[in-house]
Amino acid sequence: MNAPALLPERATDRQILTYYGLPAVKPSLWGGLVSGYIFIAGVGGSAQIIATAADFARDPRLAPVIRQGRYIALGAAILGAPLLIIDLHTPQRWYNMLRICRRTSPMSIGTWVLMSFGLSSFAVAALQYVSGRLRRPSRTMQTTMKLLEVPAALTGMAMSTYTGALLSATSTPLWAAAPCQIAALFGASAMASGTAALALAGQCRGASSEAGRALDRIAFLASAVEVVLMLSLRRRLYEKGVAEALGDRGSGLAYDFGAVMLGAGVPMLHHGRRILRPNRARRPSMMVSLAVLAGGFLLRHILLSAGNDSARRPNDYFRFAGGPRQ
């Protein structure tokens, strides 16, 4: 055996050797379609969670939120699947995804999560629609809906967060360096976006003030958690020495001002004010809900493209895969 001592000393961070600066790993082939899917999966998954939570509260005044949440979830599932299929490079073979089920591959996990989320969301939304048309919905229908909304909400949780594992279970330095932070951030951001989508739906299709008050609180909490996680992710990436790609070509500014401030910070303050002064604030701001949604998409798109960029930087990869610091 050759002793590890024979391995030449690791160069200091500044002078890491590279092979003529050429990339050491390949970036993913993903672009806007996949950022879009990650965003939509989060909105739909979380809308389903919120609808189920509202249904569990047994408050008849929450009926509009429940209904709208179920429809948003179905819409996301219907939109998400084609986005993924179009992104394949041999899309006519999409069904090969259903050949196996693999625990080590978030892509395979996600295939089955999307399948079960889509089917259960479809069933819940269909029952919702039918029972809305009937004058006296049958008891069996109500019970079936209650039974189905639980798996729909549970797979909704997976829909909102598995995409973090999808990015982190790679060798792309910026994603692989923060597996827990990215998934948790996607989860919080999904809840914030799902709430914003429901607030918007409430504005357009009508909602009760009780629902509005609860949504304000959920939005405040989710945005607050999101801000904390966004800052801790940034710190983690700096500590691991893989944040360079986030400081480049404006993506750092987009992250700090677009995603952190506009997408989460401002909405957090807005909802906080509404909670503290319920009488002063009248209607929830549509602009804020739109800002949350735009920020949620931006966050995912920045992380996706900065990740691809980091894979092209051998220094970032060698710092990530550099072993224990000497």
């Binding site: 509260a57 005044r61 597996p179 809840m191």
Partner: peptide
């Protein structure tokens, strides 16, 4: 990295889901 990542994500969103339930129930 799959396990830790999924666990962290699911824990976060489960926490937020229960918080939402509590907020709806409080209403």
């Amino acid at each position: 990295r799959v396990g830790p990542s999924l666990a962290a994500g699911l824990a976060t969103i489960a926490g937020l889901a229960f918080a939402s339930l509590a907020m709806f129930a409080a209403g």
